[in-house]
Write a protein that binds this DNA or RNA. Sequence first.
RNA 1: GCCGGUGUGGCGAAAUGGCAGACGCACAGGACUUAAAAUCCUGGGACCGUAAAAAGUCGUGUGAGUUCGAGUCUCACCACCGGCACCA
Length: 966
Amino acid sequence: MASSRRQYPFHLIEPKWQQYWEIQQIFRAWNPGEPVPENHPFAQRHGAHSMAAGRKAPPKFYILDMFPYPSGAGLHVGHPEGYTATDILARYKRACGFNVLHPMGWDAFGLPAEQYAVKTGQHPRQTTEQNIATFKRQIQSLGFSYDWSRELATTDPDYFKWTQWIFLKLYNSWFNPETNKAEPIETLKYPAELQSGSVGRASSRADSGDGSSVASPHQNLESARHAYRDSKRLAYVSEQPVWWCEQLGTVLANEEVVDGKSEVGGFPVVRKPMRQWMLRITAYAGKLLSDLDTIDWSDSLKEMQRNWIGRSEGAEVDFQIFGQTAKIRVFTTRPDTLFGATYMVLAPEHRLVDEIATEDRWQAVEDYRERTVRKSDLERTELAKEKTGVFTGAYAINPVNGQKIPIWIADYVLASYGTGAIMAVPAHDTRDFEFATKFNLPVVQVVQPLDPKTDWRGFVEDGTSVNSTGPEISITGLPTAEAKKKIAAWLEANGLGRKTVNYKLRDWLFSRQRYWGEPFPIVWKHGPDGQSHHEALPESALPVLPPELTDYKPTATGEPPLARAKDWVNLPDGSTRETNTMPQWAGSCWYYLRYLDSKNAYAFVGKEVESYWMSSRGHQSAPFSATEKNAPTNVGGYTPQGVDLYVGGTEHAVLHLLYARFWHKVLFDLGYVSTPEPFFKLVNQGLILGEDGQKMSKSRGNVVNPDDILADYGADAFRLYEMFLGPLQDTKPWSTRNVEGVYRFLGRVWRLFVDEKSETEFEQAETTAGTSSRACQSAEVRGFTSAATNLLNLIKLDSVIKDVTARPSQLKTLHACIKKVTEDLDGLRFNTAISALMVFVNEAMTWETKPVSVLRDLLVLIQPFAPHLAEELWAKLNLAFSLQPLALPYAPWPKFNPALLVESEMEIPVQVNGKLRDVIKVPADADNAAIEKAAKASEKVQPFIAGKTIKKIIVVPKKLVNIVIG
RNA sequence: GCCGGUGUGGCGAAAUGGCAGACGCACAGGACUUAAAAUCCUGGGACCGUAAAAAGUCGUGUGAGUUCGAGUCUCACCACCGGCACCA
């Protein structure tokens, strides 16, 4: 920073008010039934009994930030962008009379702390606590109005006790397709063969619903029932290939694997099958998709979730295998192209491959499968890669025309989607076409493009069916949509297939081989026959704490580090604990609910409290924004509810936001929460790039440290700058130079109020006292604050601030500002709200007399943006004019009065053929005829219309005149 | 390839279909100062003019269209950003 004089003493003002807010608990949010101390400003504004039972509480507003992962690097300038936006809104809503819930906490489990532990032996909890302390100090130095009494960390046993509790709810529930809801597992009826004493064909493993699992040779009824229930739970166990990283000695989640290498360190990873816990998120695919229509999120975000869920409508069709009893079921979105199916493809992992491959093809098939398994997903799906595959030797019968078509295996067909098998229609599918071209398979046209010039080869859009007549069914001549319907109906009627919906969404792999995560509340019981099964621990056993270890490395066998703690793992009754831990996403799935009632020892959240904050009519008492487009209201039969505004980065578009919605919906089905969606309105803040327009990164050396900005310009300037940068949602480059612009603005606000001479005296006194350094503040906070207050009291108000009635022009300036700032805050347009404040201040600087009333309103308007400066000036005004108002954060938001903006004259632009020629002044009450007359009389307009025929004159009332000439 | 978004001065940006460029940065000139910093005032899209003005012409990625009137609406195209990517 240029070593210039401070615009104003923010270095004293900011710590002073931050400490005041904390000691007075100014930003405590009050729960229903909670007694509010009489001297708290909330009580002064709303009444001491406003939250008492049976009283109608003030409307709530729940405004939430995505809580940060407290990394060792500390805060970067991207964090405060969202936090400032939410804080401004929180302060604005508080001033508008809402009971505002604005909490902060820590998403504190995670790999970095664990890796540090592996390297140094320092317990991850210690690392985590240090990082939280840094983050908290940095966040608090920005003056956010968080209710810190609700602070939580996902790593607190009091918190993850309830994460484990929710897991038990998932474990003890199943999804009932008939009610389309999660229900307690007890409501699950056993199939007929498990109801009597007979031992039936029960599947012994997680059942994917295709009824194909092989029955165990011998099981008694009890264990068969057990297995059946286990296969239906929302939390279940299955054997899954996962990413294993030898160098890191751990398994990695998909999102930690980038381009076939570990995101951390760039080490190679391999697929390895392991026993895993899964969460049945796929059961909710339909609801997760359709309920997007009921919430106010950006189009792009909703689209990302839609793509991730990936719904496609189509049909399943059974193909008889030639010469065998087995059938192959395929999924297709284009049943209308069935006549063009000239071959079939199975995924190499498809379970029928073994059965159908002929002897002469066996070796080729086996070789191909071998190669496929070794390939990573990346290699399999790599862009523009050549198609590969081998013929199995077997044939299938096309059910519509009886044709014998070859069955291939190829890795472009994924085992995990649909049925793992496709009918290939090379004429009308790009991938099938490539494959057919490479292996010389026949290509038969069955769809005619509407435009006859379009080549039908590789034509994948809708058209008209051709060559589609078989012995029993014909769809030739039908448009695609109708052809689909007709063929689907025929398939269904003949038992050959049925309409279905498929989703790309997969079940959520929920276990990690980590130390620093929530242990599962699960034990394994080992039967005498060598069989073992899992059982839930009772709620009374929660929280399940992780054992203390000295070595955090995963074991050589790939077992989780928890397995090292033998005393912890082995229980007296011979059972053993589950040694996996939950993924980092678990804690963030429900933290917004814990904030509501973070100290509750008896429930994850109290019922009444949940209902007040999540489903009382906050939106109705004050619409978020009347002007907002696309704000869904009352969609799907219920008023949108939940968190009123959630702000965070796009990086969580599909994972956190999908997982949290899923958990919330399960809790809703089970009756624990009162809304089907957690987040009513969600906004993604845009990325802040480096000064060079590149993404900020250490390697580029363009990272801006918030602490530096704070030291040079203060928190208020930092807040203001982040908001003035541009629209919240946009990506925008950082510019330290531009910080000076808003910093100067705050200096002008300061000089609008204070007497310059007294400030000079203050500066001399400060130099003598030597308290100018920020460093001394932490040492003796109280001493610092009283010294700072004494110094600041030397600064007096400007003598032209008087208790006089404001002039009409002054009121006009003020109310234009009130209007603009209010509307812009409702629309989250912080940058233009700030420019409106600048316009006001620029104007007010020229006033020879400054009415107190106007300046007080100004401070209420500025308070959300620059709270420290506003508080200091507010205090000075109150002192000088002996006022005893509410604490500034609770002072009512000024009400815009349109009558004050009325002018006696208005300016009307006059156009000739749409081109501006003059701006005329007419009386405010002039009617259209008078305006038209004045426009034609204008001297500047005359030359353009003289001698021309006037074809038409458009007068937009009070707005504009356009004279159209020939 | 598919989906979503964005294109406006030297820069960040602003404009319910109605005066394009508010507000701010940078810049230039002036005031204050021994001087500098800070502060205050003034100027500014481009072109063409002029001693200086005025007037005029052009101008919101490109090309068409709708309209009395388009940065804004429609269509096509181009560029950039983000997401997904053999999902049948």
